[in-house]
């Protein structure tokens, strides 16, 4: 990877709070224009990492750069080149939509003709053109998040950090939010995003799976599914789904209901498929089909955590 093409790079980044290690020696790099996802459960160290990258929190070990600036020594320079949207809504609740936008353009030093243009852009992208005088407190969660994103993008930063931008947002708003992120990335903006939604992680160009402060896997969503999945997922269709689930679980197969189908995780397909067929036949259940399928990220994650 060309050095000039790197937006974020960290090595051995560590943060402890007393005895607790929130982030433990993580290393990764993000190229310009990439959507880089940090996927992990709550408390895995995602927010801690993002805060260190934004220059809000000092690391206790390791080093890193954002936009070429050192995260420890040049944090104020970093703040000029990034947009940050925190997990918790952090605009001013008692200010109107427009007042919030005006305030943050002041903070980011957006002035003159540009100031007006950018304000209209934020109002447009958040769908608040005719609600500019509304007090922010009264807006629904999804709209608030879009406004927060808009305010973080007022100065058109080349790198943006989004900490769980869609937590607590309804599915339609979530999809809209992601189309915005795509648009940003298409325009050359580097997007660093954390999430605990598996389906959202699929949207990222590259992913790091983070668990208990450590990166346990990294790669594109497809790479992760292919490389890290040591076991296979079989999709089974039968004429009596519930009975089949009972039969397979009783005979020791790790089986779960998946809509009207069953998913069984097996070590070896060659031996497992005939065995499953035999067990179901014994119970007089008709097997319609058994297919080997691509595991979901959730399958990958669960498998990795079990082996971690």
């Amino acid at each position: 990877m060309n050095e000039n093409n790197i937006a974020v790079k960290v090595e051995g980044l560590t943060r402890t709070f007393g005895d607790f290690t929130a982030v433990e020696r993580i290393s990764f790099s993000v190229s310009r224009g990439e959507i880089y996802g940090f996927l992990g459960p709550n408390g895995a160290g995602k927010s801690t990492t993002i805060k260190m990258l934004c220059g809000l929190l000092l690391p206790t070990g390791g080093n890193g750069t954002v936009g070429g600036f050192d995260i420890v020594k040049e944090s104020e320079k970093i703040k000029k080149t990034i947009g940050y949207m925190s997990q918790k809504f952090s605009l001013y609740d008692d200010l109107s939509v427009e007042e919030n936008i005006t305030f943050f353009s002041g903070m980011y030093g957006v002035t003159g003709k540009n100031k007006k243009e950018r304000k209209e852009w934020v109002l447009e992208m958040s769908g608040l053109k005719d609600k500019r005088a509304v007090i922010t407190k009264t807006l629904p969660g999804g709209i608030k998040q879009r406004l927060a994103l808009g305010c973080a993008l007022l100065h058109e930063p080349p790198v943006i950090f989004l900490d769980e931008p869609t937590s607590g947002v309804d599915p339609v708003s979530r999809r809209n939010f992601w189309s915005l992120i795509y648009e940003m990335a298409k325009g050359g903006t580097t997007v660093f995003v954390t999430t605990h939604y598996m389906d959202e992680a699929e949207h990222c160009d590259r992913l790091a799976l983070i668990y208990r402060g450590k990166i346990i896997a990294e790669g594109t969503p497809t790479e992760l599914k292919v490389q890290y999945m040591s076991r296979y997922v079989l999709e089974i269709e039968t004429d009596r789904t519930f009975e089949a689930l009972e039969v397979l679980n009783r005979s020791g197969f790790e089986t779960a209901l998946f809509g009207s189908l069953l998913h069984a995780v097996v070590d070896d397909t060659k031996t497992a498929v005939p065995e499953i067929e035999k067990e179901l036949e014994k119970a007089d259940i008709k097997v319609i089909r058994i297919d080997k399928i691509m595991p979901s990220l959730e399958d990958v994650f669960v498998t990795l955590i079990e082996s971690a």
Binding site: C54, G55, L56, E76, K79, K80, I82, Y84, S86, K88, F89, S90, L91, Y92, D93, F104, M107, Y108, G109, A148, C151, A152
Partner: peptide, 12 residues
């Protein structure tokens, strides 16, 4: 109120 987090992420 948590507004400080956003504020200190700006170049102010």
């Amino acid at each position: 109120r948590g507004t400080m987090e956003q504020l200190i992420s700006t170049p102010v």
